[in-house]
């Protein structure tokens, strides 16, 4: 059933189910609800789906007000706007105020495709990660998204969910287990570890297959919760596999790669480490597979990074 679904459709369906169960759940959008699959819910819940127009800062402020009155608001817009345009509002009106507002940012990184550099968000995870109390989640397929949305609604406090809204590669089965803050180990290799999130999980799995044929057995960790980070899984991976590569569809400054680097350097893990990510550049137009090559995010790039780590380990 989920096999052929867009993630935005899965999002809409999951939210609809939850809205039927929880009357305090409301959706607040800024003229991109159609794009994110939330506008159709307007039919069933005319009073609980609010479109504030093209006024993102206002959207977050409005959601804060709704939450202050006991509603459970879920905001959505493009990741680019959610992180940058609303930053001061998310920081002060939501997080500092301690309000229970959920934020969904769609079209992360290269997924913005044809909208090009202005809409291509390589910094949303980094920005959200710097806000105290914020939880940052990036699910990789429809089945995981459904669980992540439920977990997001259950946990108290602000959550930023990074949403790929198109049809993903299927990785999980419907009803899969999901635990916020606990990385999923997808392959059990012992030679090196790739830590990935979102769209990059698929690339990491592809890299694992490639390397498998060369006798290198990768451990792939799906770090779907980027904050709070599963430090134990990282330390264990370093100890057991001795090399770590991170893979993110984002600027390699301040995102998942930096978060993992913090754990490695502070715990003196001294393992070869490399970050696969966008190297402090702005985006541009193009299709996803093209952009992944352009910004060196492909399975081969990950495999290459793993090999260079292994080489360094031999030298040392």
């Amino acid at each position: 059933m989920l096999d052929n679904m867009d993630m935005k459709t899965a999002l809409g369906e999951t939210l609809a189910e939850e809205m039927r169960k929880n009357s305090s759940l409301v959706l607040v959008g800024a003229d991109l609800m159609g794009a994110n699959g939330t506008w159709p819910l307007h039919g069933e819940f005319p009073d609980r789906v609010i479109n504030v127009g093209i006024a993102e800062a206002n959207m977050v402020g409005v959601a804060a007000g709704l939450a202050a009155c006991g509603k459970l608001p879920v905001c959505d817009t493009f990741a680019a706007f959610m992180a940058r345009r609303d930053y001061d509002q998310v920081f002060i009106s939501v997080a500092y105020a301690g309000l229970n507002v959920k934020l969904i940012g769609s079209d992360p990184g290269v997924a913005a495709e044809m909208n090009g550099g202005t809409h291509m968000s390589f910094e949303d995870v980094a920005l959200m990660r710097t806000i105290p109390t914020m939880t940052v989640v990036e699910p990789c397929d429809c089945a995981q998204l459904r669980q992540a949305v439920k977990a997001m609604l259950e946990v108290k406090g602000p959550v930023y969910l990074r949403l790929y809204r198109k049809k993903p590669h299927k990785i999980y089965e419907d009803g899969c287990r999901f635990s916020l803050g606990r990385a999923d180990c997808l392959t059990q290799g012992r030679d090196a570890t790739v830590i990935a999130a979102g769209m990059m999980v698929w690339n990491a799995l592809q890299a694992a297959e490639q390397l498998n044929q060369e006798g290198i057995h990768l451990r792939v960790l799906n770090m779907h919760t980027i904050k709070p980070l599963d430090k134990a899984a990282i330390i264990l991976a370093a100890q057991e596999t001795g090399a770590i590569v991170t893979a993110e569809n984002a600027n390699y400054f301040n995102g998942l790669g930096s978060a993992v680097a913090e754990v490695i350097a502070e715990n003196s893990l001294s393992v070869p480490f490399q970050r696969v990510g966008v190297r402090d550049q702005f985006g541009e137009v193009g299709g996803t597979s093209y952009l992944m090559e352009r910004f060196q995010l492909t399975a081969s790039d990950i495999a290459q990074a793993v090999k260079s780590c292994l080489k360094r380990r031999q030298i040392h």
Partner: peptide, 28 residues
């Protein structure tokens, strides 16, 4: 238009397109 490497980006880009006076794309 909107092709990789094109001078014509999905939203106006003053660094690439002669005659475009400012990059825009985020409304307002």
């Amino acid at each position: 238009l909107r092709k990789f490497g094109s001078i014509l980006q999905g939203h106006p880009d003053m660094k690439r397109t002669p005659g475009v006076d400012i990059s825009t794309g985020s409304l307002g």
